[in-house]
Every structure is written in C-alpha cells, then in structure tokens.
Simulated scan of single mutants.
Amino acid sequence: MQLYNTLSAKERAELLENAGEERLTLSFYQYAKIGNTTIFRNHLFIAWDQMEVLGRIYVASEGINAQLSVPATRFNEFKEFLDGISFLKDVRLNIAIEHDLKSFLKLKVKIRNKIVADGLNDDTFDVTNKGVHVAAEDFNQLLEDPDTILVDMRNHYESEIGHFKGAITPDVDTFRDSLDIIEEDLKDHKEDKKLVMYCTGGIRCEKASAYYKHKGFKQVYQLEGGIIEYARQVENKGLENKFIGKNFVFDHRRGERITNDVIANCHQCGAPCDTHVNCENEACHLLFIQCESCASKMQNTCSDECLEIIQLPQEEQKRLRQGIPNSNKIFKKGRSEKLKFKK
C-alpha cells in the first residue's frame, strides 16, 4: 500500500510540463469530529494519489483543511469522492481565479493536532458555534454600516500585499497571536458593534467567529469563502470590489491578483512591489517581497550573506547546513533585520 510520493518535486514538475493538461487549484475545509485520523488520512492519500491529485492537506480530530491541485478532467471524480464522505458532501470548494500547473508538486496528507493552530486550551469552546456567514453582496452592505468593525484575520505578510478598504489589519505573525489582541482592542464593543471578519478561504474566520461568540461578542459575521470566493462573486455578479491588491495564497504562486493596485514595497529597495519570494539560500529560505531589479542584483537572495553562500559549490552549502536547524528567519516572513524596508 503506497502512502508516500514516488516522484521528487523536480520530476513531478517535468512530468506536468510535458503532459500539458489543465489543472485546477482549489481549497476547502470542514470542521467535523474525526474519530480515527490515521485511517482517514490513509483513505484520502490512496484515493487522491490514484486521481493524480497534488496538494497539502491537514487532518485533525476537529476536521480537515486542504489546498489542492486537481486534473481538470478528473474534477467530477474528485467531487464524487468528497460527496461520498458524509461530512464533506456538498462542501464548498474555493476554486482559484488563476491556475498554475505547478501550484503543488507533491501530495502531502498530514495529521495535526488542529487544522488551524490557535493556541487555545478551552474545553468549553465549541468551534461549531460559528458566526453568520455572508456572501459578497451582503458583505459589501455590512461594510457601509457605520456600526461595522471589519477585521483581517490573516497575518501581517498577507495583509501587507492586499486587504479590504478600511479593515483593521493586526500586525501579527500567527493566527493565535491575533485572537487575544483583537478581543482586547474591541472589548468595549461586544454589545453595540457588528464584528465582521475575513481571511483567505474562510477557515480562520470560522474558528475566530466561534471564539468571539464564546467571548461574548453578540453580532459576529464572517465572509463566506473568504477573499477567494469574494473575488469570484464580484466578477460573476458585477459587484463593487472593495478589496485592493493581491490575495496571498499558500501554494507556489504565493499570490493571486485581485486588483492592479500595488500597495506594498520591495523589502530591499523600497520600490512598489507585491511579489513574495523565498530566499535562494536553502539554509535561509526567508519569505520576503523582492522586485525584479533586486532579484537580478541579489540573485534571488535576501542579503549579502546569503548571496555569498549560494556562490559556493552545492556540496559546500550542504556541509554548512549540516546539523544546523532551520533559520529562525524563516518564520519572520519579512521581518528579518537583513531587510532594509521591512514592515
């Protein structure tokens, strides 16, 4: 029974390029009680491997969170498979506006303690007691209400390249950091204001909306399907688009353009730019914003130090990395002291 990838990322990329077949990039999530996560994980991997599905999927006792690339010709087969699982029948699929053959290069189905790390240890917290879901049109109407407080539930590096007009964008590194900060900042408005939240595809807002209801907020709403579905509904229904810039996505594209506005800056020279890259130095791999000019000058690295390292032979680079854990800069995502124009 095969429960692992037989091809490397490079081999898969070459195979996809040669095949030239259309693939759909999509995501979905569902909170549900899963008894045996190992059996469920294995069931998914075996079925999706046969369908040539690629992606990153997290399974926990509280549900599933999936970002996937599916062959367009097998989409109906994939959908029928999901509908055959009771708690995934008719689950909302957030299909990307832009598709990329190489958005994912491996199939990874991993078991986690939670599908969204929240740092909460509260037995009385019920994640299924969620806020009101609103579609794009109702969401736009809520934003016109002076009693609405709009909060971005994403991290700083996501909102930096794109967000809704007038939104509160917490300067946080992780979802768990934002929960207590937002509650403290808005504690005086639990009764009189409408708390409206959004995120990439809805999964973080789903948990946050239940959390804030648990904390006493009376009017809690979330954008159904997140920014991904909002952009689709705006286009299909001809609605006013209140989002500006790019939507950060968690695949090889790293961003999906919603409007032509560029609201961020290159972290190295300060020029207008909203393209996220990972430092070419494998021992660093820092996520940061880099313009084409700096990419050429710095050879896709974040610093002079990393630029020097990538000039070394591969074996020497491997030797330098040996026994050294991943750099903490990986998790700073644009906050490294090496970057002159970091947020």
Rank of each mutant, 00 (worst) to 15 (best):
Leu307Met: 11
Asn155Arg: 09
Lys194Ala: 05
Lys33Pro: 04
Asn300Arg: 09
Val116Phe: 02
Glu183Asn: 07
Asp251Thr: 06
Asn140Pro: 05
Ser8Leu: 06
Ser293Trp: 02
Ala135Lys: 06
Phe175Cys: 04
Ala208Ile: 02
Phe243Met: 08
Gly226Phe: 02
Leu3Val: 15
Arg112Cys: 03
Glu184Val: 13
Leu15His: 13
Ser178Val: 13
Gly202Ser: 09
Cys306Pro: 06
Cys269Ile: 07
Ser293Asn: 05
Leu186Trp: 04
Ser159Lys: 00
Ala208Cys: 02
Ser61Lys: 14
Phe341Cys: 10
Ala72Tyr: 12
Leu101Cys: 08
Ser159Cys: 02
Asn5Trp: 12
Glu98Leu: 09
Lys333Asn: 15
Asp185Ser: 14
Glu17Pro: 00
His285Pro: 04
Glu158Pro: 08
Tyr230Ser: 04
His43Tyr: 10
Glu229Ile: 05
Leu82Gly: 10
Glu158Thr: 07
Val116Trp: 00
Phe288Ile: 01
Ala167Tyr: 00
Arg56Ala: 02
Gly20Glu: 05
Asp138Lys: 08
Leu120Arg: 15
Gly334Tyr: 08
Ile324Thr: 14
Cys302Thr: 06
Asp100Ala: 02
Glu305Met: 09
Ile161Pro: 01
Ala283Lys: 05
Cys279Thr: 10
Leu143Ser: 01
Phe243His: 05
Ser69Lys: 01
Leu93Trp: 04
His133Phe: 14
Asn328Trp: 11
Lys297Ile: 12
Glu22Val: 08
Ile227Tyr: 02
Arg319Phe: 06
Glu240Asn: 13
Gln311Tyr: 13
Gln67Ser: 15
Glu229Lys: 10
Asp100Leu: 01
Phe139Cys: 01
Thr128Ala: 13
Leu3Thr: 10
Gln317Gly: 05
Lys329Thr: 15
Leu120Met: 12
Glu256Ile: 12
Ile168Met: 15
